[in-house]
Design a protein around this nucleic acid. Structure first.
Lengths: 190, 190
DNA sequence: GTCTATACCCGGATAGAC
DNA sequence: GTCTATCCGGGTATAGAC
């Protein structure tokens, strides 16, 4: 159980040298500040005070750096959801709140981790499942409902990030409405 | 400046000259085949058998071309939803099916139209509202519920497009579960 | 309305010296 | 581990001839 609950990000980090970890930290800051498009080998090197070619002594290519960031995003979301679960076991609303808060606290990283196919082969084993587990538990193991809730939450978050809702509208009510509906339907489709 | 923009009329295409319409058609084909990233002024010109600088006689810049595609995506989704509404008035399930089918039939165009802030100022007036109207009607005018349903539908579509669900899983049940839950909650939060 | 030529920027990545 | 020098490709956009 300790093994399951241990921070996967630290597991991922252990695959890296100390210097590589510093590079990833800089890359993350870059993405969080200016978006995934702003992450270039040159800008990353600049932030570290070195030249771009030096980065290739630590990572084979840019994709390898991005994989680390995607893993961090996934692990961060997993942690946030696990914490919410610990605070309010079984509460879909608490889970949704935590997911929303975490995503909106790191919108650019969220985009990086979610708007492209997952590099599953390169991620720490079990990370994807770990991120999904709290929601699945809150849905009493109903996989289909968990997927529906995930889609709702992701849709709300990503539409808000992209400014797709009319300007200035509060979204709290839409979240409540959606969560209540999806929570209330438990077991109605056995 | 030959990039004449004619007066806005009910049909989006009529805002453009004949040649400009051909260019947009080529741009759309490019995007639908290879994704939004593949749309460059060079590749667009190549497909038309002309050189890139010639495009600037018809459009002021690349963003103007993209705006036309985004408008087409929005209009296409609106048409699909209006047709579903005509076939099955008031049915959220029919609307969801139509939305899903249209999006998955043009996944790259859907991404272009949805994964960035809407260029509202440049779109045909009323288009955004028109696209939202069928869903709002199906929700009996409950705006918050309409937003929740939209988020759910968009989440399902975009997660599928990006290959985020486990490989090979059927998503029909998740759609049914979500729609049923959001449909069943009508009026429960007055 | 199309062309050529070009300016100017950006990107990822490699070779080889230190 | 970092550097310099470079390669190679790509992108948006403009000027001016025809």
């Amino acid at each position: 159980m300790d093994c399951v609950r241990r921070k996967v990000s630290s597991v991922a980090d252990q695959r890296l040298t100390a210097r590589a970890r510093e590079i990833v930290t800089a890359a993350r800051a870059l993405v969080e500040e200016a978006g995934p498009e702003a992450l270039t080998m040159r800008s990353l090197a600049d932030r570290l005070g070195i030249k771009a070619p030096s980065l290739y002594k630590h990572f084979p290519d840019k994709a390898a750096v991005e994989v680390e960031l995607i893993a961090q995003q996934l692990a961060g979301a997993a942690e946030a959801c696990e914490a919410a679960e610990a605070r309010a076991p079984g509460s879909l609303a608490a889970l949704a709140d935590a997911y929303r808060a975490h995503a909106l606290a790191h919108p650019h990283l969220y985009r990086l981790g979610t708007e492209r196919p997952l590099p599953r082969h390169a991620l720490p084993p079990g990370l994807e499942e770990r991120a999904a587990a709290p929601l699945l538990r809150a849905c009493g193991g109903e996989v289909e409902r968990a997927r529906a809730v995930w889609a709702f939450a992701h849709g709300m978050v990503i539409l808000e990030i992209h400014g797709r809702f009319p300007e200035g509208v509060g979204l709290g009510e839409a979240w409540k409405t959606g969560v209540a509906a999806l929570e209330g339907s438990a077991g109605e489709r056995p």
